[in-house]
């Protein structure tokens, strides 16, 4: 019994990080119908910001987290302005190729600075509580709670505020909405800032949980988060969260009860079957309400 609880906790931790990254994919897709393949690498940049702030500026956890989020958000907005905006009316393939290019640039730029894996110092005192055979670490709790809080704030912003309403409106119709006086460029920038900022937060938390970071860390995690977004119904915010927890859960549970070699095979086969049954994802609809 304790074994199952322990694995469920592991799944929640992994799932909440996937979900945070998946949100960035889904928000950008919702508003621009474009898949930002550089998102995984922005997540990596978030982890490196965390490393720089913690090691060279000796900041504690809260300022590190906030500044990393801010830094990645600014980077996201700059990338949108320089690389994606000129292509807004170009064929979608061009935008995707540009996104892949931006991702490669970020990886190789970080690599050129230093190819060595980096160690993120322990920013928070970590205590492990043992309850019977179950061990819970404070870090695990922090990651799960913080991710949930961030997701709740995001949900509130998108559903209840004026800016959120504008985001949803733009994703609904890009030609009519500007005529109503909605500042499209500002809202798109805001969406990018929030989406990549969440990716940055995920980078920091990932760095705390798995404190060895390298320039390639964003690739695989990025792909997996993208899959989460698709499974949840791309463009749908709540779907991305659910997708993240599903993938995290499946990955952990497969490794827990089957030989761990089968993990990715079984996980991705299950997701494929899910997509065959529901091609629009779990919460997606043929004409989904997008952000």
């Amino acid at each position: 019994m304790a074994y199952i609880f322990q694995q469920a906790l592991n799944a929640l931790q992994l799932g909440s990080i996937y979900a945070l990254i998946a949100l960035g994919y889904t928000m950008v897709y919702g508003i621009l119908t474009m898949i930002n393949f550089a998102h995984g690498d922005l997540f990596m940049v978030g982890a490196f910001f965390c490393f720089l702030l913690a090691v060279y500026f000796h900041l504690s956890f809260v300022p590190t987290l906030l500044l990393s989020m801010l830094g990645v958000a600014c980077l996201g907005v700059i990338i949108e302005r320089l690389a994606y905006k000129p292509l807004r009316n170009a064929p979608r393939v061009s935008a995707i190729i540009t996104a892949l290019g931006v991702g490669l640039f970020l990886e190789n730029f970080t690599l050129a600075l230093s190819p060595y894996p980096k160690h993120i110092p322990q920013l928070l005192e970590n205590t492990t509580w043992a309850i019977g055979a179950l061990s819970i670490s404070s870090l695990q709790i922090l990651i799960i709670v913080l991710s949930l809080v961030l997701m709740l704030i995001l949900d509130f912003v998108v559903q209840r505020t004026k800016a959120g309403m504008a985001m949803r409106a733009i994703s609904w119709d890009k030609t009519i909405v500007p005529l109503m006086g909605v500042p499209v460029n500002k809202i798109i920038s805001l969406t990018f800032a929030i989406g990549t900022g969440l990716g940055g937060a995920a980078g920091v938390m990932y760095g705390l949980a798995y404190p060895v970071i390298d320039p390639y860390m964003g690739i695989m995690v990025g792909w997996k988060a993208f899959i989460c977004a698709v499974v949840g119904g791309i463009g749908n915010i709540r779907g991305a969260m659910i997708g993240g927890f599903i993938l995290g859960g499946v990955e952990i549970l497969v490794a827990a009860f089957l030989p761990s070699t089968y993990r990715d095979v079984v996980a991705f086969t299950l997701l494929l079957i899910l997509l065959i049954v529901r091609p629009y994802g779990i919460l997606g609809k043929p004409q989904p309400q997008k952000v």
Partner: peptide, 20 residues
């Protein structure tokens, strides 16, 4: 006798199994 693949960062599932 547990496995993972290159570039994995999360080993919690395998390690929980080992602990058991």
């Amino acid at each position: 006798f547990e496995t993972y693949t290159t570039n994995d960062k999360d080993f919690s599932s395998q390690l929980t199994k080992i602990k058991k």
